[in-house]
Each structure stands twice: as structure tokens, then as C-alpha cells.
């Protein structure tokens, strides 16, 4: 098993195309997850018992079942119900729902982390509900959420390798296909691993910068 530089260089363009798809899946998956998490977090606080119960049940179900099962469900089962979606979209939905269920907990912790006295002060100053959320609660709740949200998105980036199973031409599946075609797995899989590592590393670095600028230092004095 000897590393073949010529081969490695030749497959890099294909692998990079795969990386592009991975980034796209992660990007849209993240947007979906941020929105899904918010909807679940708000529904969990609803005054209507039925809404609260079903959103909690849904989040619990998503968190307690493997992402792979959810992915298969969307890709193989939904078409039998007449809903046929392109593989990449299936992947984005699965990643978004799965990560969103976890993010709802991050939101909850962030919001619950704002002391009751802040709500009371806002009420005493006669802020309306929307003003209280926008001007008082969220500016305090969001900075502490950023590290956890970032970590879940990095996890999602790595989990997106599972999309190779439903034929999304992302980084993992491109690398595996090259291996299947050439019977050389060393180079494509090594390059894929390095790319995952590189991007995760950059993301962690970015996260640290955002964190230090997000005003946490001010809040804790």
C-alpha cells in the first residue's frame, strides 16, 4: 500500500466537487435546523397543552432515533406515500430535523438562563411582549448559545457523510466511488478525512472568534 501522488492529484477535483455538495448540505441543513429548533423551542413553551405535548414528543422521537433511520425514512418511505424528493433535499431535511431537535434544547437552555428578574424588569418598564423578547431576552440568551449551536453544526457537517448512503454526491460518496472504481481507497479516503478535519478545524476557529466578540465578556463582567 504505497501512496500514489499522481493518482491523488488526479482525483482531487472530483473530491472537491463532493466537498462543495457537503458544504451546501451543511449550510442549508443548518438554516433548517436553526428554524426547526426555534419552532420546537417556542412550541414547547406554548400555553396550549396539545401543542406543547406534540412538539416535545416530536423532539424526543427525533433525538432518540438514529439519523440513519430518519434518512432512510425520508428517502425510501416517503416516496411510497407519493412524496418523491431529490436525494440532496432528503439529506438536508434529515440533517435539519435531527440537528434542529437538539438545537431546541440549546435554545431552551439559553432562554431559561436569562434570570426571571429580567422579565419582571421589562414588565415593570412596560415593555410589550415582542419588545421584551427582542430588546431584553434574546440579546442575553443568544451569546451563551453560540458555542453549543456551533458544535452541533460541526457535528452535522461530519454526520453529512451519511448522505453518501442515499446517493448524494457529497464528499464521502465521491471518495468511496473513486475507491470502488479504481480499487484504490487509500488516497480518496485519506484526502476526504483531511478535508473533514480541515473544515471542522476552521469552523472551530471561527467559532472562537465569534464567541469572543459576541459580548459574553461584557455580560459576565
Amino acid at each position: 500500500m504505497i501512496w500514489d501522488w499522481d493518482f491523488a492529484l488526479r482525483i482531487i477535483p472530483d473530491i472537491l466537487r463532493g466537498l462543495g455538495t457537503t458544504v451546501i448540505a451543511t449550510f442549508f441543513g443548518s438554516l433548517l435546523a436553526l428554524a426547526v429548533g426555534l419552532v420546537i423551542a417556542l412550541a414547547n413553551r406554548s400555553d396550549v397543552t396539545a401543542v406543547r405535548r406534540s412538539s416535545r414528543g416530536f423532539a424526543e422521537f427525533i433525538r432518540r432515533t438514529p439519523l440513519l433511520v430518519q434518512l432512510y425514512f425520508i428517502y425510501f418511505v416517503l416516496p411510497q406515500a407519493g412524496v418523491v424528493l431529490p436525494p440532496l433535499l432528503c439529506g438536508v431535511i434529515a440533517l435539519g430535523l435531527h440537528t434542529g431537535a437538539y438545537l431546541s434544547e440549546v435554545y431552551r437552555a439559553g432562554i431559561d438562563g436569562v434570570p426571571r428578574g429580567q422579565w419582571e424588569a421589562a414588565r415593570a418598564l412596560n415593555y410589550q411582549q415582542g419588545q421584551t423578547w427582542l430588546k431584553i431576552i434574546l440579546p442575553q440568551a443568544i451569546p451563551p448559545m453560540i458555542p453549543a449551536i456551533g458544535n452541533y453544526i460541526i457535528l452535522m457537517f461530519k454526520d453529512s457523510a451519511l448522505l453518501s448512503i442515499i446517493a448524494v454526491p457529497e464528499l464521502m460518496s465521491m471518495s468511496r466511488n473513486i475507491g470502488n472504481d479504481s480499487y484504490r481507497y487509500l488516497e480518496p479516503l485519506t484526502i476526504a478525512a483531511i478535508l473533514y478535519l480541515l473544515l471542522s478545524g476552521i469552523a472551530v476557529l471561527l467559532l472562537r472568534i465569534i464567541e469572543s466578540r459576541s459580548g459574553m465578556a461584557r455580560l459576565t463582567g
Binding site: 415593570a124 415593555y127 459580548g215
Partner: peptide, 23 residues
Amino acid sequence: FQHFNLFPHMTVQENVARPPQIV
């Protein structure tokens, strides 16, 4: 309030100036 409940993400000036502006 007993425990002040100032808004920690705003300066002292903003704590006093924003509420009349917003409300």
C-alpha cells in the same frame, strides 16, 4: 427591585435611556 434587575447587555446610560425611547 431588591436585586436591581438592570439589563446587563446595556450600558448604564442605555439602561436609563432606552425604556422611555422604546416604550
